[in-house]
Design a protein around this nucleic acid. Structure first.
Lengths: 327, 327
DNA sequence: CCTCTATATGTAATCGATTACAATAAAATA
DNA sequence: TATTTTATTGTAATCGATTACATATAGAGG
């Protein structure tokens, strides 16, 4: 590996001057600068991030923690994070945690060790103590999922309102027996959306029936199918389904078709997230769109501001009910 | 941040002794070891990866470069990489390059700088010189995409054979006017699959018509729809489509339905990759399954072996034609 | 031509770990 | 007890950068 010493030697200057040329903090004579730049070119020199970080405690790397990359919901958010970070001179590293506290701890340590400057957390809060402790000493922002009590900054949407509007829409088109396919309620969004679901019921004086609520623990197509299968086996079949994710809704749709039922006439469906696939199904899926790209952008710039020592404020962004063929 | 000096001071020993306790390389007296461990506990000390790496040139971090995380093809591979790496004591960091040489260069530099120990490349080879140069000094393996001429180890499948078998299957069920929706031919797999497509045609004495081949440059549903729209506007409509990716095939399927045509009777479709979604469409999609998880596992252990200085050999894994309703 | 600034460059300490080598203490042997 | 051997521990150099401070050089003003 080429070091700064070798460059200095070749250019006939001291290491300090080379460093000054690289970081152009203080003035260097035009002629010297040229000599140094030539030496850098000739030797193909790249400053060692390690050496630099050790001195500066700065890596210009951001960690993005997601439970699972296979959920398309995250991809747009990540695009937003990436675009913003790069513009600000930061690079991002994606870390998949599988919601596993051990994995999470490894990545937290990268920040403690100054290998990364900050974290964007999209995990549900499992080990609150750990997160809060890290947050006292290091820049963290939460995106999508967050901790209502803690004082870690976050970007998210009003999940309760979104769910309330979705269910209200189903009621308005004449549906009464509205099933709810929800995630594990360790996720804040799952608890909030359930609250919205129940709120809509209360408003129209419909009783909430426990048997119509189905919690899954993996966000994939098969879970959606499985959930729908169970719901269809009940004596009084639902006439609508609100799924907490498009992926689940699409699985449910498949199962409804497999039973020879029609969407939306027999059963209407609403999903959540507006993943690109939700427009490819037949019929196309009514869904709640979150401003995922913007959420990504905002969380990245919040984090970078925090790293710079500025105060940042949490935000709730606007969502939108996208009505398509499935309702 | 707690440093090794503070631990040493509290335990009343030298930093060398603390380091020895942490890495237990040489013997430390039981009593001293206990004192040091107690101090580590009390201060909540975590060794700085930076300091350690600077000395050892080892980070136990692997970089995984992918063109785009939104392509579900990569998710299973990544799961394989992740599981294997963790078992071997390495952590992985995902880097999205958008096939952009500048982004790639940034991540290559992390390896040159010893911030990461090696790279698994899933990008197409754009800047060959750069990759080959990096490979001379640093551990790299290629996964899925690779460079036939270079001597970088790789794991992949026989794309030509797979495409040949897929097209042969279409011919055997009586299709004659088989369209081909292909990626940009900067990708090796695109060139190889085209070769397979043409080979099948030659074998059955069918002329390859240029107008039936459509190259897209973005792997998303819309590209598939767009491609199919163009193909359906031709005077002699195709009676089958071979798409180089399930995502494209699903877009094409949507467009075929929009035109009131039936699958597979009017037009049969074959995709590639067997993404989980390919089983959710109506009709379900015939596709070529690649052993993605295994590819991930193997590429990770190849890389780790390379880091350890061992010789590794490239591999081509088995694929499988999965016949479902769309053909 | 000399003095005084302003500018440009060099020297050496520093970041937090590891480790070769030196030094000390403890144990074994004569 | 004196001497040798062995087991522990300490000292200080090192990795590759940055930067406060010291020094040298150039330019301005008289």
């Amino acid at each position: 590996m080429v070091t700064i010493q070798e460059v200095a030697k070749r250019a006939g200057v001291s290491v300090a001057t080379v460093s000054r040329v690289i970081n152009n903090r203080s003035k260097v004579k035009e002629k010297t600068r040229n000599r140094v730049e030539q030496a850098i070119d000739e030797l193909n020199y790249e400053p060692s991030v390690l050496g630099r970080n050790l001195r500066n405690s700065e890596s210009r790397l951001l960690l993005v923690l997601i439970p699972s990359i296979s959920n398309p919901f995250y991809t747009e958010i990540i695009n937003g994070i990436e675009d913003t970070s790069i513009k600000e001179g930061y690079n991002i590293l994606l870390c998949e945690t599988d919601s596993n506290p051990k994995r999470e701890a490894i990545y937290f340590n990268l920040v403690r060790n100054r290998m990364a400057d900050g974290i964007i957390l999209m995990d549900p809060t499992i080990n609150r103590k750990n997160v809060l402790e890290l947050a006292t000493n290091h820049p963290i922002v939460q995106c999508s999922e967050f901790d209502k009590e803690g004082n870690i900054s976050y970007v998210s949407i009003d999940n309760e309102l979104a769910a309330y509007q979705a269910v209200k829409h189903l009621i308005k088109i004449g549906k009464k027996r509205i099933a709810f396919i929800n995630s594990d309620e360790k996720f804040l969004y799952a608890r909030e959306r359930r609250a919205g679901y129940e709120k809509a019921f209360r408003e129209f004086n419909i009783a909430v029936e426990k048997k119509r609520i189905y919690n899954i623990n993996q966000l994939n197509f098969e879970s959606g199918q499985q959930a729908m299968r169970t719901l269809l086996n009940q004596e009084e079949k639902p006439d609508a389904v609100f799924a907490v994710s498009d992926v689940l809704a699409i699985g449910a749709l498949k199962e409804i078709h497999a039973n020879g039922l029609k969407v939306p006439d027999d059963i209407a469906i609403i999903g959540f997230d507006k993943i690109s696939f939700s427009n490819m199904t037949h019929p196309t899926l009514t869904t709640v769109s979150q401003p995922m790209y913007r959420m990504g952008c905002i969380s990245a710039s919040m984090l970078i501001n925090k790293i710079k020592g500025e105060e940042v404020e949490s935000m709730l962004l606007e969502h939108e009910l996208v009505i398509r063929e499935s309702t």
